[in-house]
Amino acid sequence: MSLSLNDKVKNLLELIADDWGESSPQYSACSDIIDYISSNNYEQVAHMTLGSISKVISIEIEMKLLLECLQYLSGSRIKVLKVSFELIDDEDNCFALSSSDVKEATKTGKLAHPEFGCLIPEPSKHIFPVYSPRLESVN
């Protein structure tokens, strides 16, 4: 028998409380994120940026804590989010990047434009992490 959405969310929050403690800022931030993605249609939350996620968190948090929570929620234990990366070029064109592209760009500082093949100067300024919900976890 498959669990209802409410039961899935309840189970996730219990796990998060076990891991961080219910009074921790991590619990508060993670539960806000889960509440947001479970109460919206997939299309509305399929492309979340760090900025849009930080907007749904009700407490004031630093980037360090936001990234910590997103790493946790994207991991193998909770499996709520999937992280991917995209390149936005100077003309505002957007391209999905592979993990290998991102590793190469951050390691060597070199990234070829997916369409034109030319090297992109300072590629880290053009690479953006984006998050989508993992359907099996919350929808």
Partner: peptide, 19 residues
């Protein structure tokens, strides 16, 4: 925290984040 899109470079420059 700014709500604009944040790049990997922004993260690297963020003072709250250790390398």
């Amino acid at each position: 925290m700014s709500l604009r899109k944040l790049s990997l470079e922004d993260l690297m420059q963020d003072k709250s984040l250790l390398p």
